[in-house]
């Protein structure tokens, strides 16, 4: 099992779902250290369920999910959040009624006793997203969709996790905002963050990620290196995803 050392995330034989009906079946994949991996698939393929299983939000799950050598199946979300994984949820889900900075500080909840580190992380978010710093005193949910996405990514960065999870970050964003998003994700990658990106937009995934997995009806049906997939492959996947 040498790959647990090289990998931030190793998923093996993961099944699970809701009310005893499995949505995902025998999933296996990995995210290497400093690697960006995309999970592609059509609506209802089970992509979000995989993320929920990793973060602990999904209670009914079997198999192993190893983050940094720790099997997190059986752990609750607040335990997994202690440095192992953090997520940008679908639809951003910023904390309503709270300022941008409060949203960020809540993201760094687990490090609240380490003031210096929190301030340093906060500064790194502001460096990455100057717009977030400009609006730090505003109510987070009053920002535009693109700006909110920056806050959501910042909130995830604040917990300084081993594994960063992003669930459909491009959903509902204007084209300009999507361009900003891609830039932001690339910068995260350059910082050697381990990233698992769930997307429907193949172009974004290919632009940002090293490798991709294709999920369909709760099973991994294909995988490959992003660089190996040419225009033809791209069209094929596009057609496949519908």
């Amino acid at each position: 099992m040498s790959n647990t050392i090289d990998n931030t995330l190793v998923v093996e034989g993961l099944s699970g779902g809701y009310d005893r009906f499995d949505v995902i079946h025998d999933i296996a994949f990995r995210v290497g250290r400093g690697e960006a991996v995309a999970l592609l698939g059509p609506n209802g393929a089970g992509k979000s369920t995989v993320l929920r299983a990793i973060t602990g939000l999904l209670k009914h799950r079997r198999g192993t999910v190893t983050i940094d050598g720790t099997n997190v199946v059986g752990m609750g979300p607040h335990q997994i959040s202690r440095g192992l994984a953090a997520m940008v949820p679908e639809g951003r889900r910023l904390f309503v009624g709270q300022s941008v900075e409060d949203n960020l500080r809540l993201g760094g909840m687990r490090l609240r006793k380490d003031r210096a580190r929190t301030d340093q992380l906060l500064q790194s978010v502001y460096d990455l997203f100057p717009v977030v710093e400009r609006y730090k005193a505003r109510e987070a949910t009053a920002l535009s969709g693109g700006e909110q996405q920056m806050v959501a990514i910042g909130r995830m960065m604040m917990s300084d996790p081993s594994l960063m999870l992003l669930d459909e970050p491009s959903l509902g964003l204007a084209p300009l905002a999507i361009a900003d998003l891609i830039t932001a994700l690339q910068q995260l990658r350059e910082r050697k963050s381990s990233i698992l990106l769930v997307e429907q937009r193949v172009d974004i995934a290919l632009e940002v990620c090293d490798r991709i997995y294709v999920l369909s009806e709760g099973r991994i049906v294909d995988e490959g290196r992003a660089s190996d997939i040419g225009t033809e492959g791209r069209a094929l996947i596009d057609a496949y995803l519908g």
């Binding site: 973060t55 602990g56 939000l57 609750g76 979300p77 607040h78 997994i80 959040s81 202690r82 953090a86 997520m87 949820p89 889900r93 904390f95 309503v96 009624g97 809540l106 993201g107 909840m109 687990r110 909130r155 917990s159």
Partner: peptide, 12 residues
Amino acid sequence: TDPEIASTFGAN
């Protein structure tokens, strides 16, 4: 407002 997401940021 969002217990699920709060729990993924360490809220018990």
